[in-house]
Design a protein around this nucleic acid. Structure first.
Length: 648
RNA sequence: GCCGCAGUAGCUCAGUCGGUAGAGCACCUGAUUUGUAAUCAGGGGGUCGGCGGUUCGAUCCCGUCCUGCGGCACCA
């Protein structure tokens, strides 16, 4: 007797083990047709699997959000089958469901091109139409290996050896195509909705290792319905419209050029945005008890050797030396490196003069300009560059102070993210990596302290094993933007290693020398990247206090030109960034242009306004307008443009 | 760095089956003084990413380098 509890709480009893398909059929023919899989005690399983024990069972249909993973995984298999039918000699390797879709990695000499996509998609649809039953079976290890060998599938054959001994190997077959796979899968290819689309092709390494052969990965997206697919494609388009590289050009914020790969040319508008952000950060840091410093760009290699950076990161460091012919004698063998990080410099400042326990915690901030020789393929607009400015700070403190400092930092970070328009963030805890400095005892201590601090700050932690910095564990703060994308920005790292290596010390209450602990922390990460994130988050429509150009006074007739100048001056006197547009153009033209440039406030000035000393305000994205006396308008805009904290 | 794709005017893009290029917007000039998302007319502007090769002739074909784009890998 098997008792099946359905999601509505009702119980059905069967004499013999029953499959999900039979169960669905017993409930109704509609459900039997719609059934894609079953969830047995919350676990997704094949519809054909006999259920022998009492269980809570739910029939999964395309409407179930969990069905998407199934659909996407099956889409990957159908893709692989289609590719092998169309391109004989192509080997299959691995193809999972991923967020929004799926991919499959193939081994084939000739490249796939996006032009092949239409043909492959067509064949995928045919395979769906064939409605091939998808059957699971258990294969004996050597037999399966031999089968793959015979069929020229060397990657699959190799993989079998990697699977834990003694584990069952399941094979899913659809028609005469099969793949080794843990499943679950749909009951037949005909159940796969045709709401899929191949999106891109890229290179990848077998098992992710650059030493291994290069495979070709075909990406696709798959959904339960045509409508969902359309919606997703539309979202992608919207994301493209927010691209900071595009908006950066349109709003004249910055540019990049090949003579300075990985460095940003900031235009007046972009630099205004930067400076506003910097002044804001400065104000917040000052209020939180930080001091600000600036450390050198060019530092003798010797210091990097002492700090340990040379050892681990010299490949990513830019070197600078005087030309040999003209170098002064004292520079003989000296090699300078352009700083990739600010921490060793901060320690040098800490080490000047004797520090007392009374000086701790010492919160030393630096908008530190760093250079790193990033791999060429890593560059991306202003988000990933070789020259960047961190909103860095190093807190020198005692071990008992770690917790309070961490809690205070989390508060500061929360405030700043909120001010900048990000309500949503989560936190990852990264512990010791394989390659690291410092003893295990020191790591135990550091990880323990950071974890305790995170708990005290009331953070929910996601574990991120092995991803810590070489000198210590870290918290990583990840923002969620307006269209749901995640950006890792803030970080808090506990470091017992660097003070030791660089011999930083303070005099304790006992009159003896002690090692301070160093907390490395950043909130924005880098100004370059964070500016890019702000651009994409707001789609260029910045909050008034951040907008590079806050208001434009646009005239309708040239008779209002003089008055427009007065308006501009009044706005400037109130601390607003304003311009005039006196061009000989129609007001329609001016409104269109400044709207596209995402200027938040337009002041329309015609003969009437000039005569009555009024302005007509039109806010970006609104057709509604408002006519106010000049003084009143300036006061109102000043209030609207007020930053979250008075700017330093 | 790796795989693939791309590079034509400031921007977006068309074009040349090898005979030194074109549109729209932008820019300049003139006319127009205009009331809430593009006024009209005229004009200037390109060593068709760099270098080398094939060819009578290369923007087009071949090689190579650079840069960008999408992933992978990387992200102290």
């Amino acid at each position: 007797m098997v008792n099946i509890t359905l999601p509505d709480g009702s119980v059905r009893s069967f004499e013999k083990p029953v499959s999900g398909a039979e169960l669905a059929a017993s409930i109704g023919p509609g459900l039997a047709k719609a059934a894609l899989a079953v969830k047995i005690d919350g676990q997704m399983k094949d519809l054909a699997l006999p259920i022998a024990k009492d269980a809570k069972v739910a029939i999964v249909t395309a409407k179930d959000p969990d069905a998407l993973e199934l659909i996407r995984h099956d889409a990957a298999h159908v893709l692989a089958q289609a590719v092998q039918e169309l391109f004989p000699g192509t080997q299959i390797t691995f193809g999972p469901a991923i967020e929004n879709g799926f991919y499959y990695d193939f081994a084939r000499k000739e490249p796939f091109t996006p032009e092949d996509f239409a043909r492959i998609e067509q064949r995928m649809r045919e395979i769906v139409d064939r409605n091939l039953p998808i059957e699971r079976s258990i294969w004996e290890r050597d037999r399966l290996k031999a089968w793959f060998r015979e069929h020229g599938e060397s990657f699959k054959a190799e993989w079998i050896d990697e699977l834990p001994k003694g584990e069952e190997i399941s094979v899913y077959r659809q028609g005469d195509w099969l793949d080794m796979c843990v499943g679950p899968h749909l009951p037949a290819t005909g159940k796969l909705p045709k709401a899929f689309k191949l999106t891109k092709v890229s290179g990848t390494y077998w098992r992710g290792n650059p030493k291994n052969p290069v495979l070709q990965r075909i990406y696709g997206t798959a959904w339960a319905s045509e409508k969902d697919l359309k919606e997703y494609l539309h979202q992608i388009e919207e994301a493209e419209k927010r691209d900071h590289r595009k908006i950066g050009r349109e709003m004249n914020l910055f540019h990049l050029q090949e003579e300075a790969v990985g460095s940003v040319f900031w235009h007046p508008n972009g630099w205004t945005l930067w400076r506003t952000l910097e002044r804001y950060m400065r104000a917040r840091l000052e209020a939180a008890g930080y001091v600000e410093v600036k450390t050198p760009q060019l530092v003798d290699r010797k210091l990097w050797e002492e700090s340990g950076h040379w050892d681990k990161f010299k490949d990513a460091m830019f070197l600078a030396t005087p030309r040999a012919e003209t170098a002064h004698a004292e520079d003989g063998e000296r090699i300078y490196a352009i700083k990739p990080m600010n921490c060793p410099g901060a320690v040098q400042i800490f080490k000047q003069g004797l520090k007392s326990y009374r000086d701790l915690p010492l919160r030393m901030a630096e908008f530190g300009s760093c250079h790193r020789y990033e791999p060429s393929g890593a560059m991306h607009g202003i988000m990933r560059v070789r020259a960047f400015t961190q909103d860095d700070a190093h807190i020198f403190c005692t071990e008992p102070q770690i917790e309070a400092e961490s809690v205070a930092f989390c508060d500061l970070l929360r405030t700043i993210y909120k001010d900048l328009g990000f309500a949503d963030f989560f936190v990852k805890f990264s512990d010791r990596p394989a390659v690291r400095a410092g003893s295990d005892a020191v790591w135990d201590q550091a990880e323990g302290a950071l974890r305790a601090a995170a708990e005290a700050a009331g953070l929910d932690l996601q574990l991120n094993p092995g991803e810590g910095a070489f000198y210590g564990p870290k918290l990583e703060f990840v923002l969620r933007d307006a269209i749901g994308r995640d950006w890792q920005c803030g970080t808090l790292q506990v470091d017992f290693v660097l003070p030791e290596r660089l011999d930083a010390s303070y005099i304790g209450e006992d009159g003896q020398r002690h090692r301070p602990v160093m907390l490395h922390r950043a909130i924005l990460g880098s100004f370059e990247r964070f500016t890019g994130i702000l651009i994409e988050h707001f789609a260029g429509k910045f909050p008034l206090w951040l907008a590079p150009v806050q208001a434009v006074a646009a005239t309708i007739v040239s008779d209002a030109d003089g008055y427009a100048g007065e308006v501009e001056a009044a706005l400037a006197a109130a601390g607003l960034r304003a311009k005039t547009d006196l061009r000989n153009e129609k007001i329609n033209y001016k409104i269109r242009e400044h709207s596209l440039a995402k200027v938040p406030i337009l002041l329309i000035l015609g003969r009437k306004e000039a005569e009555e000393r009024k302005v007509t305000i039109r806010r970006l994205g609104e057709e509604r307008q408002e006519s106010l006396a000049l003084d009143e308008a300036v006061a109102k805009l000043k209030e609207l443009a007020k930053p979250p904290v008075p700017l330093a």
